[in-house]
């Protein structure tokens, strides 16, 4: 079975209980599809629900409502036991390479663990045959195999995290801010590695980050989230060249430009104010409290996603 779309997410909703009768509306009605071999970037401020979205898709969290379809199989309400064989298809790379590796395990054991957990190998020696080439692939050597995570730099640890995610030859990898904890000179190393792997194995990535220039660089499509809603999604160059949603425009206007002459010419186009609380999200368009173009309608009616031409989807009453 080979579906064109590795991942389909329909009206995905995730609410958390927050003490008393309060509910955190982390993700509300998010829909998108990810084609096989492609990369979808998700961007937005902290608290916009991008990480919750990722964790719900991979079923670290239970789904409140909506549907998650992985390679044609609906996994929305699957029990963890049923889900286990499917987990080989989707893996995750985490933001913090310091917290996501077990300090008491050697690098070999960390990378071999998924192989053993999924019954692909049952002996350590057999695992080595797969672990060593993987180590080399991510730019480490055999000699690193017997060391512990604390002996490595941040960039090297992230390579271990990548090796662990990729050893099962997954089809979908969810990268939750994989480079934000790394130094600039190391970020490019990790990005090139992820891109090479995609080219060679036809992997699909759901790439979550707040670094918009990096997201544009790695993604085929980019979705912008704000306070649990997906507000705009389209081809990645298009979203940067022709942003439609006022939030996307503001977000792009806030990126520091690494060019002093251009930076001086830049008009002040950022967004005022802070992101509201997801416990009491504003009615209508959730961005209307900070939007310079808000109309009365915006605070009452939630705008629906519509095609603004050429598959450029935007949820805004201005269009």
């Amino acid at each position: 079975m080979s579906n064109q779309n590795i991942l389909e997410v329909r009206d995905l909703t995730k609410h958390f209980k927050a003490g008393g009768k309060q509910v955190v509306h982390a993700v509300d009605g998010v829909s998108f599809t990810l084609a096989r071999g492609k990369t979808l970037g998700l961007v937005g401020e902290s608290g916009c629900g991008k990480s919750s979205c990722a964790r719900t898709i991979i079923r670290m969290y239970d789904v409140t409502a909506g549907q998650v379809v992985l390679d044609g199989t609906d996994i929305t309400n699957m029990k963890q036991k049923e889900l286990k064989p499917l987990r080989r298809k989707m893996q995750m790379i985490f933001q913090d390479p310091y917290a996501s590796l077990n300090a008491r395990m050697t690098v070999r054991d960390i990378i071999a663990e998924p192989l053993i957990a999924h019954g692909i190998v049952n002996k350590k020696e057999a695992a080595n045959e797969l672990v060593y080439p993987m180590l080399e692939w991510v730019g480490l050597t055999k000699e690193h195999a017997n060391r512990y995570a604390h002996e490595f730099s941040g960039g090297q640890r992230q390579r271990v995290g990548i090796a662990r995610a990729l050893i099962l030859k997954p089809e979908l990898v969810i990268c939750d801010e994989p480079i934000s904890a790394l130094d600039v000179s190391i970020q490019a190393q990790v990005i090139n590695l992820l891109k090479d792997f995609q080219e060679e194995k036809g992997l699909s990535y759901l790439f979550i980050a707040h670094d918009l220039s990096m997201v544009r660089y790695v993604s085929d499509e980019v979705g912008v989230m704000y306070l649990g809603h997906l507000v705009e999604i389209c081809e990645s160059n298009e979203i940067y060249d022709n942003p439609l949603h006022p939030y996307t425009k503001g977000l792009l206007g806030s990126i520091p430009i690494a060019n002093p002459r251009l930076a001086r010419q830049k008009e002040k186009s950022g967004i005022e104010g802070d992101i509201p609380s997801p416990i009491h999200p504003p009615a209508g368009c959730r961005f209307h409290t900070r939007c310079p173009f808000a109309k009365p309608e915006c605070s009452e009616v939630k705008p629906q996603m519509k095609d603004a031409g050429g598959g450029h989807m935007v949820a805004c009453h201005l269009y």
Partner: peptide, 15 residues
């Protein structure tokens, strides 16, 4: 090693 916001996506980053 930093991608420009206008960087050509087919050009590899130079880490």
């Amino acid at each position: 090693s930093i991608p420009d916001i206008k960087q050509d996506k087919s050009v590899r980053l130079m880490p």
